[in-house]
Amino acid sequence: MTEDIPEREARAFDLDNGDKIFITQRDGSFFAYQNLCPHLQVELEFLENQFLDREQEYIECSTHGALFLVESGECVSGPCQGQALEKVVISVHSDGGIYLALDA
């Protein structure tokens, strides 16, 4: 539900298929990504649901400090520059539900 993901915060979710994702909110829009750094293939957060940098401007990899744009997942600082987080397609419904569209 949208109220479970406050503005400029993120929440992790474990999917039934074993994938780990996170969803974050920025300016009323929601963005979802695989919880996997493109550089070292490790989970991003340093503490539970802590995906954003101190200023809550960028998604940050806890392993090496790479920074990613919230809106696109593009790496803008760190060893994986030019790469991006793997986006997860979501839709937000008027009932406040957030729904995933996953590959079969």
Rank of each mutant, 00 (worst) to 15 (best):
F68I: 04
E45I: 04
L40R: 09
E7N: 09
L47T: 12
P38W: 01
F31W: 12
Q81N: 13
E71S: 08
I98P: 10
S91W: 02
E60R: 14
A12T: 12
C75Y: 03
G97R: 11
I5W: 10
G96N: 00
G82P: 01
E3S: 12
F30W: 10
L40D: 13
V89S: 11
L15D: 03
V88N: 04
F13T: 07
R26D: 12
G18M: 01
F31C: 00
R26L: 15
Y58W: 14
Q81F: 07
L67E: 07
D95N: 15
F22M: 06
S94P: 10
E60H: 01
T2I: 15
Q56I: 10
A12P: 00
D103K: 13
L36V: 15
G96K: 04
K20V: 10
L67K: 09
R54I: 15
C61A: 08
V42E: 09
L102Y: 08
E74N: 11
D4G: 09
V76Q: 12
L47E: 15
M1V: 09
I98V: 10
R8Y: 11
V70W: 04
D95V: 03
F30N: 04
A32H: 08
E60I: 14
D95M: 06
E48G: 04
I21Y: 06
G78R: 00
C37Y: 04
T2C: 08
S72D: 03
Q34Y: 08
F30M: 12
E48M: 11
Q81C: 10
K20C: 09
G73L: 04
A101W: 12
E45A: 05
F68A: 01
G18C: 01
P6Q: 07
F51N: 06
S94E: 14
D16M: 09
Y33Q: 06
G65R: 07
Q81Y: 01
A10Y: 02
D16W: 11
S72T: 15
G65K: 04
G28V: 07
A12I: 01
E45S: 13
D53Q: 07
G73I: 03
L40F: 03
L102H: 03
D27T: 06
E43N: 13
F31K: 00
A10V: 01
D53T: 08
D53V: 00
D103R: 10
E9K: 08
I59H: 08
L15G: 09
E71N: 09
Y58P: 02
F68P: 03
L44D: 04
E45K: 06
V76S: 02
A10N: 02
A101P: 00
S77V: 00
D16I: 14
V92A: 09
H39S: 06
Q50S: 15
H64R: 05
S72H: 05
V89L: 08
Y99G: 11
V76K: 06
V89R: 13
D53G: 09
L102M: 14
G96W: 03
F30G: 09
I90P: 10
L40N: 05
I98C: 05
K20W: 01
E48H: 13
V88W: 12
